[in-house]
Amino acid sequence: MPEWLRLRRAQPIPAEDAAQWTKCPKCSEMIYRPDLAANLWVCTKCQHHFRMHAFDRISMLVDADFTEIGGDLLPGDPLGWTDKVPYPQKLQRDREKSKLTEGVVCGFASIGGFPVALGVMDFNFRGGTMGTVVGERIAQLFERARERRVPCVVFTASGGARMEEGMLALMQMAKTTLAVRRFHDDGGYYISVLTDPTTGGVSASFAFQADVIVAEARASIGFAGRRVIEQTIRQKLPDNFQTAEFLLEKGALDSVVERRDLKPLLMRLLDYGVGAKQASNGHATVTAPTSSESRA
């Protein structure tokens, strides 16, 4: 295990034996946690895709090293928010629970030899909601990717805009969009991977602004929450409503993929985009993989 991952791994396997087992929320099978981890956090019985910790996701994808950026950006409490507990306390609780400093981890790495800027959201931190820090880290990721001329790959998992930061949270949709748009208009190649769940202000901004939009199988994806829609229209929604498969048929996604096939697909997608820049009479804008760079 690389040093960065050993230090940052957020889900230390507990020592006591009972905690080694996890119940699949889908089929209720009791699964031995190391088996689950070895199976990319996919249920060994029913193929249910567990929500992944950002660093587990990163270690599943990258060739070797991962250099984090924006990790020192930490949320404040701009509205002085208090409900049952003050917002800063909620943040502190989630930091301890998730071992993360915010709802997204961003940085540089290589995937299959292709240097990329990689952003991975994590539902364990405030439901992956986007506040000022998530927006800032995502914006910085696209700006740095543009400078380095590398493709950008972002994994989304989010409950939407973070209520506790109010309008400052909502405006992150505009901020991230501007960064994505500038990256794109400068020839950048952006792949987003929508994981369970991707909703609200994140789905309605950078998640759906990519050149290629992939979703993990059976992920829940939408704008408004299922309950909100059901209460508004006073109808029961079909089971497949807002699933990745539903959205694929409705034309919203390029592709839906099982987690085990995700990395090979990403490598092919990167190859089409990066390789084409060298071979055609277009302008070279995305960096091609080199063995030295990918191991840097």
């Binding site: 409705k250 034309g251 996604l253 089409y272």
Partner: peptide
Amino acid sequence: DELHGDRHFHD
């Protein structure tokens, strides 16, 4: 590698 859909209504 198939890319689906019109991003609006249907594949």
